[in-house]
């Protein structure tokens, strides 16, 4: 049994909240630099330049890339041979609190969908836990912006609608979202499972590296196909027209019921902020 102190988790989570918001991951930086070169609209090129200047400035000054420093979503992979000294959930809550306070990050969570009173410390995070074998605690932390989250959709397709139905639904979701989710977007797609499983998979898909093609060649091909279709919509950076509407499409699949083909689309903005820690 491996023991992990609560304080270690608190500090690491706090650090991840800040790093995610100040420093864009290399895969996204590379994609923005490439998109600036490849974008055919002049206005689009100019917008990419602003986004590049922005992430460089944020990293240098240690300030948030975007003022919407997100809902904190934490995927936990807890090894069976790990014993957290203290309470894991408490540690995650405290880590978020500390990270958002000390990092001068915006507190964007309200207590109740109707009374809208701010919780004041960006808690609670949304936590998804999986028990796995081994003696490691893995944390994948995402700071998820509200504007792009609002444009996400789920649909229970019929099995007969198949791959074409999925392609149409994903492309249509991005088309309807238009300029709202801060394109160029990154599109997470969850296919299969149940209603809630598909949504969860679509969020998990957003954790993948942009350069990472799906391990199943057929799914990898579908990711590419959807990306090409999206980039032909003409929406472009910030919706002002162009060839770079999305930087990537990532699909995650799961077995499903004989009656169903659940499809979820979780849209992320270009400021796709997530970090990983292994304890």
């Amino acid at each position: 049994m491996k023991k992990i102190a609560k304080s270690l988790i608190v500090n690491r989570v706090a650090q991840m909240c800040q790093e995610a918001n100040f420093v864009l991951n290399d895969d996204i930086k590379k994609a923005l630099l490439r998109a600036r070169k490849e974008e055919s609209s002049e206005m689009g090129k100019n917008i990419f330049q602003q986004l590049i200047d922005n992430y460089q400035l944020a990293e240098k000054k240690k300030v948030p890339i975007c003022q919407d420093t997100g809902y904190t979503v934490i995927f936990v992979e807890l090894g069976e041979d790990v014993k957290v000294e203290g309470n894991l959930q408490e540690a995650l809550f405290e880590g978020v609190k500390k990270g958002y306070k000390e990092g001068y990050l915006r507190k964007s969570i309200v207590k109740d969908p109707f009374n809208r009173e701010n919780t004041g410390d960006n808690t609670p995070p949304v936590i998804h836990t999986e028990i796995v074998s081994g003696n490691k605690l893995k944390l994948y932390l995402m700071a998820k912006g509200g504007g792009s989250e609002n444009m996400s959709k789920i649909k229970m397709l019929s099995p007969a609608q198949g791959q074409e139905g999925v392609i149409d639904f994903v492309v249509d979701t991005v088309r309807r979202a238009d300029a709202n989710p801060c394109p160029p977007v990154i599109v997470g797609v969850g296919l299969g499972g149940t209603f809630e499983k598909a949504a969860l998979l679509s969020k998990k898909a957003l954790l993948r590296d942009l350069d990472d093609a799906h391990s199943d060649p057929k799914t990898a091909k579908l990711e590419k196909k959807i990306l090409n279709k999206i980039n032909k919509l003409g929406i472009g950076p910030q919706g002002l027209g162009g060839t770079r509407t999305a930087l990537g499409v990532k699909i995650e699949k799961y077995p499903c019921h004989i009656a169903s083909l659940p499809a979820a689309v979780n849209i992320n903005c270009h400021a796709a902020r997530h970090k990983k820690a292994v304890l």
């Binding site: 975007c66 003022q67 001068y104 990050l105 609002n150």
Partner: peptide
């Protein structure tokens, strides 16, 4: 349309980009 991030010590405001207008 903006909800800025808090100002760090020595700054007057934090990051302050636009939110969605609709």
């Amino acid at each position: 349309y903006v909800g800025p991030a808090p100002a760090k010590p020595g700054e007057i405001i934090g990051s302050a980009g636009p939110t969605t207008s609709y």
